[in-house]
């Protein structure tokens, strides 16, 4: 599967993964054993990085770095930043915010809002078309997608089928890997 200048290879199999979920309360230091499915992202500038989708027994699913095999130094940022958390919905879908790693006046990239024009550059195609192509069930604001009326109601998001690793990896590659490649926000 290709996303702009990234190639995604899905690694067969599911393995146990022991760790601390990102959305655990700060005071909760306990670890959980989740189920990990891995995918490798390679890029035209020689990155070879393995990421994984972890489904925790007692926390929200998420995507995080598993191993950076080789690549430019700037991609090391992906080892500690850019985790993607998925929010399970009552109808069996998962909601994911569309945010990207960007320089926001700092010397390193952090997750932040991303415009449609920036998304178009990251995905190398019109965002709505891109998300449809990778298998997302919907793309819009949280309010549009799940009727969110909180302060995050205008946050761009996608809805995916629960566990759809293709859609999730595509979103991750565009908003994390491509964002680092393009030095988004610089």
């Amino acid at each position: 599967m290709k996303v702009n200048r990234c190639t995604i290879e899905f690694i067969d199999g599911e393995v146990a993964y022991e760790g601390r979920p990102t959305d655990s309360p700060r005071e909760d230091k306990s670890v959980q054993v989740g189920k990990l499915r891995k995918f490798r992202v390679t890029t035209t500038d020689a990155l070879n990085h393995i990421f994984g989708l972890i489904e925790w027994p007692g926390a929200r699913p998420e995507v995080c770095s598993i191993e950076m095999i080789s690549g430019l130094e700037k991609y090391e940022r992906l080892e500690g930043a850019g985790r993607l958390t998925l929010i399970p919905q009552s109808n069996g879908t998962w909601l994911a915010d569309v945010r990207a790693l960007r320089y926001n006046g700092r010397d390193h990239q952090t997750l932040a809002a991303v415009s449609e024009a920036e998304l178009q550059e990251l995905a190398a195609q019109e965002p709505g078309e891109f998300f449809k192509q990778i298998g997302c069930l919907g793309y819009g604001t949280r309010a549009d997608l799940v009727g969110d009326d909180s302060r995050k109601r205008n946050q761009l998001a996608v809805l995916v089928k629960a566990g759809d690793i293709q859609a999730i990896a595509g979103l991750f590659a565009a908003t994390r890997v491509m964002a680092v490649m393009n030095d988004l926000g610089e």
Binding site: N4, T43, T44, L72, M178, D183
Partner: peptide, 22 residues
């Protein structure tokens, strides 16, 4: 902002990457 990483090809060409392009 880039860290100065570059690659050297067999014929001595020195290249860096910008937005994924050498």
């Amino acid at each position: 902002r880039q860290s100065g990483e570059a690659l050297i090809a067999d014929d001595g060409a020195v290249m860096a990457f910008r937005k994924g392009q050498a």
